[in-house]
């Protein structure tokens, strides 16, 4: 039996690393991967709490989070491809069309 605190601390650490990646990286694909990392961290805390509380609902939420993550990845990567085709860049600093 793994103590709940260990899993939740690991989850917090992974989530923080995901946020840090979104803040310091500029490549759009890497930003998407960091969002996936945050989703994975949340999944870990869902699973740990489901195990700790003997509740199957946590596992069901993980299932739905994974569904949303798969849809998000496919649409996000399609946007990256379309963006690369129209603007020839993958870097968040150069995607500034809204600035005019």
């Amino acid at each position: 039996m793994i103590p709940l605190e260990y899993s939740l601390t690991l989850s917090a650490l992974l989530f923080t690393l995901g946020v840090l990646g979104v803040l310091i990286r500029r490549n759009v694909i890497v930003l998407l991967m960091c969002v996936e990392l945050m989703l994975n961290a949340v999944n870990l805390s869902f699973v740990a709490l489901a195990d700790h509380l003997d509740s199957v609902e946590g596992l069901l939420y993980v299932f739905f989070v994974m569904t949303v993550a798969a849809a998000e990845a496919s649409v996000g990567l399609a946007i990256v491809v379309a963006l690369h085709r129209s603007r020839k860049t993958l870097y968040a600093d150069e995607i500034d069309l809204l600035k005019g």
Binding site: I2, S7, I29, L32, M33, E36, N40, N43, V47, A48, A50, D51, L59, V62, F63, M66, A69, A70, A73, S74, L77
Partner: peptide
């Protein structure tokens, strides 16, 4: 798997480590 979530283990490997990362 260590948290007794066998089903989530399987779909994590297939959906995330397999499908999503393959797409990336």
């Amino acid at each position: 798997l260590l948290h007794h979530a066998e089903f989530i283990f399987a779909i994590q490997l297939m959906v995330y480590a397999g499908a999503v990362m393959m797409l990336v």
